[in-house]
Design a protein around this nucleic acid. Sequence first.
DNA 1: TTTGATTTTGCAACATTGTTGCGTTTTTGT
DNA 2: ACAAAAACGCAACAATGTTGCAAAATCAAA
Lengths: 137, 137
Amino acid sequence: MNAEALLKSHGLRKTAGRLAVLALFAKREKALSHSELQEGVTENVDRVTLYRILESFEQNGILHKVPDDQVSVKYALCDHDHEVGEAHSDNHAHFKCRVCGDTICLDDSEIPTMQVPEGYSVEGSLLLISGLCSKCA
Amino acid sequence: MNAEALLKSHGLRKTAGRLAVLALFAKREKALSHSELQEGVTENVDRVTLYRILESFEQNGILHKVPDDQVSVKYALCDHDHEVGEAHSDNHAHFKCRVCGDTICLDDSEIPTMQVPEGYSVEGSLLLISGLCSKCA
DNA sequence: TTTGATTTTGCAACATTGTTGCGTTTTTGT
DNA sequence: ACAAAAACGCAACAATGTTGCAAAATCAAA
Ligand SMILES: [Mn+2]
Ligand SMILES: [Mn+2]
Ligand SMILES: [Zn+2]
Ligand SMILES: [Zn+2]
């Protein structure tokens, strides 16, 4: 399905910005950040417009957001001692309530090992479960 | 282990800001964001200083970062059709290379179901694996 | 208890990311 | 060609995080 038809099938108008975004996704075959798109796109697209293009694509299921690490806006006390220095991975999952926003450690959990492509190596993982806590249920 | 001893055991000096941060973590028993700490802490701590307190605590294994959702800095093309509207969860894991930063979808993967506390309900989950890609290995 | 090296702080300045409002332009079907 | 709807560009703002530097506080040794 080419870019034009894709837009039409979702009732989205054909604009230079949208075509440029789709073209870039077609060329680079990986997840792209807003800034990567901003730089990589041939057209001069306004920064805000680009956000809105991505928003419209997401609402129409053309693309989806991908979590990025180094994002951590929250902190929790470690429940055991750690070596000073290197990132003590704390290999457990976390739960965040959609309503109250509280985030707790699932200390007893263990993030399962996942299969990665040939030649890739795993150093860490991050599992965030979202839903309702007992208070907000 | 009380707050003073904790600081001393890591060679961190005892300051009003650090004690206030530890006190708040002791009172609220959950993960806290920088802004939550900023507001909740009794002492008047400079915003930058608070960042540095958290940094020092993290380096010493006193606390650890917790991933937060609504973070999505990247976007990927959906590999199948989605309904317009509600968050098509795309229940697969993602891999991000530590060196080149490339993020790919592990489309074939499925995020395992995790056990959550009594009364909690799961709506979605987010699994980000980090490591080295074959190009950067 | 004074001193002095070291750590920590506060402040200013800046960068990045994301959002909202609004007037203008572009797209598309008629 | 026309008009309604959609999309855009721009300005302004907010939140989050970073860096440099001078002043202040801490701590241990004298
Ligand atoms: Mn945790
Ligand atoms: Mn994906
Ligand atoms: Zn809740
Ligand atoms: Zn790589």
